[in-house]
Design a protein around this nucleic acid. Structure first.
Lengths: 99, 99
DNA sequence: GCTATTGTTCGAAATATATCGAACTATAGA
DNA sequence: TCTATAGTTCGATATATTTCGAACAATAGC
């Protein structure tokens, strides 16, 4: 698989980012990435079908939240935390803190 | 019209709140309420039909973002800012700051 | 009571989103 | 080259959401 295209952080819209976070499956992915640093799609599927997860990871990537790199057959995902903190100061902290 | 029921702030879910904010019309309403303090539905419609606006205000109310009080035939809306700041510290500030 | 004003509710149509199986692609390793 | 593994893409279905006109409800003022 070729590397993914990720949006420039400045092109990321708040609207799309909030929409991406407003789904429980995706919010769960984001929280786990925030905790665990980097993880494969596989490791975060919670028993859901691969195609469903692939969809959610795509939404997260396109929203600018997640960076995916290829490592063999595995896709390793991570939060674009530093960039996000610059682009939307305080947002991710507030979101991840909220219970 | 009878007074609306607003959710208890502790019953407000981050998920629903983020979804409510992920629509451009509603985000615009929230920004203007943050600026102007209190406003009627009418004052914020931007030329859109009343029924569309009524829908968006309902979503905002049910998400816990907006408080609506009756004042004669007018419905005055305001951000539940203080409560939101307690419930989700830093969130509204980050959202409203983002450009 | 009558009328104008503000919004809500209902119903329908258009659009978007979520979910998931099946087929496919790419890579690692034997 | 063959096989197993990790994800993507496609296509279909189900569900949500947005939008808006039309009918309705509540209040103010005459």
């Amino acid at each position: 698989m070729r590397p993914f295209k990720h949006p420039e952080i400045d092109a990321v819209s708040l609207e799309h980012l909030l929409h991406a976070l407003s789904d429980p499956v995706r919010m769960d992915i984001v929280r786990r990435l925030a905790d665990e640093g980097e993880a494969s799609c596989n490791a975060l599927d919670g028993g859901r079908p691969k195609s469903s997860m692939s969809h959610h990871f795509r939404v997260l990537r396109e929203a600018g939240l997640v960076w995916t790199r290829n490592d063999g057959t595995v896709h390793m995902n991570s939060l674009r935390r530093k960039e996000l903190d610059k682009r939307f100061p305080g947002l991710m902290k507030a979101v991840l803190t909220a219970k």
